[in-house]
């Protein structure tokens, strides 16, 4: 089996994978980083969103071997020293989750949005979360959370 090497949350990692192994499978099953979720089998739900070289991508729609040499950030890479990242804190403060299954993908997509657009209005936030499905919240508190985080993060 081929070996793949990449940097995940700042740490160099490598592992044996099948050619067909998806990035999300490598993260969850090889590295045991199970914060990245699989919510569908059709690339539609966005629960698996991670950052690859700084851009948000669906780790279920990418082979692990495609990420050879890449810098990957998962939800586990956001908190530091036990302190939640401002986006995670804002989801908590605004009740931006109920069951929490979609939350890792939501947070990673929202982080990419705020990095590229530090002061997004409500319509922009809703448009940019189009790739992330939530079956619980009705999205309203998620949008509020992203607005709060954008302010906290200096937008």
């Amino acid at each position: 089996m081929p070996t793949v090497s990449m940097t995940v949350n700042g740490q160099a990692v490598s592992g044996e994978v099948e050619d067909r192994t998806l990035l999300v499978q490598f993260l969850r099953e090889n590295l045991r980083l199970t914060g990245t979720h699989v919510g569908c089998d059709t690339s539609q739900c966005g629960a698996c969103v991670v950052h690859v070289n700084g851009d948000s991508m669906k780790s279920c729609s990418m082979l692990a071997l495609q990420a050879e040499g890449a810098e990957v950030t998962t939800i586990e890479g956001l908190a530091s020293n036990g302190e939640l990242n401002p986006m995670q804190q804002a989801f908590m403060d605004n009740h931006g989750l109920q069951c929490g299954f979609c939350t890792p993908g939501m947070v990673m997509s929202a982080m990419d949005l705020v990095a590229k657009n530090p002061n997004p209005d409500e319509a922009t936030i809703r448009e940019n979360l189009e790739g992330n499905l939530c079956r619980c919240t009705g999205y309203h508190n998620i949008v509020k959370a992203v607005q709060q985080a954008a302010k906290t993060m200096g937008g």
């Binding site: 948000s56 991508m57 669906k58 729609s61 990418m62 189009e130 790739g131």
Partner: peptide, 9 residues
Amino acid sequence: IGDPQVRNC
């Protein structure tokens, strides 16, 4: 096209 994650790939 698609959503932001599709557009990034």
